[in-house]
Design a binder for these strands. Structure first.
Lengths: 194, 194
DNA sequence: CGCGCGATTGAGTAATTTCAAATCTAGTGG
DNA sequence: CCACTAGATTTGAAATTACTCAATCGCGCG
């Protein structure tokens, strides 16, 4: 294991520590089920049609998860930067074939785990089960907020809300891609600034 | 405890059984933290501004959770019918003041539990922690699907997708309310049929 | 029988999309 | 270091979708 991966595992430890208190042994045990991976910009974490998908903890970098329509338009389901988790959750939880793509907007360092192993460590360590329940709950609330934003805000409102909510992310995401997260055309988004 | 509540608890038991295997004692223990409540059409489960909210298991009936804008427009966050869970999840998880209203579209029988008690029984019974993690995961996936629907479908597409996904619900929900779930005006929804 | 709510229909308007073209920019190879 | 290219952004104009406002219709309930 090289230097950088060690760094990733430290971040994972800190990430768990924000919510639960694992012993050193517990963490080592859990960590042993994660594998490190480095990807460069434009490389894929998950590809449509893939048979089995793993969940990824982003230690560094930035990725986008998106669905591609038959007309070739991309719709961003989720961004994930440092300390975020990402996968095709439908495929992951239901052992289904991936219907989304996830690729790197920036070079990334990741830790990934299979669905079976995640369930296994959650079963072995109750605190982890709690951790992931809390994470999932928070994710649910975040998606509700996004839905609300889509329901009652126009293009400009959604853009401003995104800037307020994720000021750091805005800098790192090309406008074209942000447009397809907000559900507006890139031209419309471009016109909002003025 | 009257006859009807007994019925509600049986439904809760069956609901747990779909995912986990609780012993009789475990279920009785968990159930002791739930309280039954009957509400009539138009009565509230949760009201905006409320200090503390409980999570509700719907044993019978149908409710809607919605956010009201300053202009007085309602945006439906969620419907909940038999075997669904509902609350203001932001308020529930973060012990915050409710910003949404939830009221009955039909007469309802509910079982409700506080956030503290839910955490408590999840802590005591690992299988329940797992149960609610799975539920939350499924909820997350469902919201992602809804977001995708909002991003890439027009009014008609979203309506048809809803019908396909929740054929039973469509019958029970007034069009006006369904419109504010789909994010279209009631007039537009009305024009879709033709 | 009439009231009131929900659903429908029409007409004009506003927001956003689409298509097309012009700019701008960052990274690449010479 | 500079020219070049691919991708991203901006701008313009026309077309489309959905909204708003207003009026009407339909129906169940008291």
């Amino acid at each position: 294991m090289e230097k950088k991966s060690v760094e990733s595992f430290k971040l994972l430890k800190k990430h768990f520590d924000e919510i639960i208190a694992l012993t050193e042994e517990e963490f080592e045990y859990a960590a042993s089920y994660f594998r490190p991976k480095k990807l460069k910009k434009h490389q894929f974490l998950v590809q449509e049609g893939q048979q089995s998908v793993t969940e990824h903890f982003v230690a560094s970098g930035l990725v986008k998860a998106y669905y591609t329509t038959v007309e070739g338009k991309e719709h961003i389901l989720q961004f994930a930067m440092e300390n975020w988790w990402v996968t095709d959750y439908h495929a992951f939880y239901h052992k289904a074939i991936a219907s989304t793509n996830i690729d790197c907007i920036e070079d990334c360092e990741l830790l990934y785990i299979s669905q079976e192993d995640k369930d296994h460590i959650c079963h072995e360590i109750h605190k982890l089960e709690y951790f992931f329940r809390v994470k999932s709950n928070n994710g649910y609330v975040a998606l509700q907020r996004r839905i609300l934003s889509l329901l009652n805000q126009d293009a400009k409102g959604r853009y401003e809300e995104f800037i307020k909510l994720y000021p750091k992310l805005v800098q790192r995401i090309p406008k074209t891609i942000l447009a397809s997260y907000l559900g507006v055309s890139r031209e419309t988004l471009s016109r909002l600034g003025r």
